[in-house]
Design a protein around this nucleic acid. Structure first.
Lengths: 164, 164
DNA sequence: GCTTTGATTGTTGCACTGCAACATGATTTT
DNA sequence: AAAATCATGTTGCAGTGCAACAATCAAAGC
């Protein structure tokens, strides 16, 4: 299982920069336009491994420029999700920059830490197959799977144990 | 895998009545109060195998009595979810009466049909274990899992095929 | 019985989510 | 350059979700 739960002390600036660079090359390759607005939204999300609500994104963007209207941000998010650059966390009504490009259609499980709010992505073909099989055995043809696991990350668990 | 995808022609009245009866005995057993408001909300949900939004529930309840305020309905839903009688479908911001009591803590996968909106519940220990293992291998201690699979149910798929 | 206590519901108000519909502006294509 | 396409801005609104306080109701103890 390919998985990444970002350690709390890693180099954010670096991974954010990589993420933007990847978005640029991907859009160029697909003849899609990474406009200033879209780039801005992606930058805001990349600056955090925590999922952000739409208004948090707006507030963040407003800190360095004119305040975008909600619809503007939602449109940028729609674009970024279509390109696979951003995930939506359904159980939080929030959005997250994708930290490693998945194969298209792959099922990604999100590990959402209740302690620090950080989200890890676990992509597993085995898991995807299992879910697809389970669905098909019920005569169901799956097109999209949402898997979101809430709990405590290793770091927060350790911290909580020390507190005892 | 224990699973139920309700056929489109089954006896709703019967399964709704069973559901209420079960709720009553469960609440009695736990010394919890199934008040008129809570009962009403459960009845509304039981009358459909489709997830309903909060305002749909309000509208439905208003058809046979005073119109409850949103907060009142949310409180009833909180209670019903705590008792395991109602599920929340995160990807729809909607609620669904649970059609078969699961073991507590069991992971339930929802099969959401894009055609008819009906939702099936697939409870599988194997799936739950797999997800839990995947999470733990990342040092993550899971407490709650959301699995929602969107697609086409057997019935809608057949109907769509005929249309060709 | 009566009161106290805790649980439930009602009221008001508000912040956030998400998008429709239309107007304007920018880019690419012909 | 004109047309077509795409992106953003503007206005407005329906739905989601809950905080804070008031009023009510039900169960437990005196």
């Amino acid at each position: 299982m390919t998985d990444v739960f970002p350690p709390p002390d890693h180099n954010h600036a670096r991974c954010a920069a990589d993420l933007i660079a990847h978005a640029e090359s991907l859009c160029a390759q697909r003849a899609q336009r990474l406009t200033p607005m879209r780039r801005k939204v992606l930058e805001v999300l990349a600056a955090s491994h925590k999922p952000l609500g739409a208004y948090e994104i707006i507030d963040s963007a407003a800190a360095s420029g004119p305040r975008p209207a909600p619809i503007t941000v939602y449109r940028a998010l729609d674009f970024l999700m279509a390109q696979g650059l951003v995930h939506r966390i359904e159980s939080r009504n929030a959005f997250l920059a994708c930290v490693h490009h998945h194969d298209n259609g792959a099922v990604v499980a999100f590990l959402i830490c209740e302690g620090c709010g950080t989200v890890g992505e676990a992509a597993g073909a085995a898991m995807g197959n299992m879910l697809a099989d389970a669905a098909r055995s019920a005569g169901f043809a799956p097109t999209l799977s949402v898997v979101e696991i809430t709990g405590l990350c290793a770091h927060c668990r350790r911290k909580r144990a020390e507190h005892t």
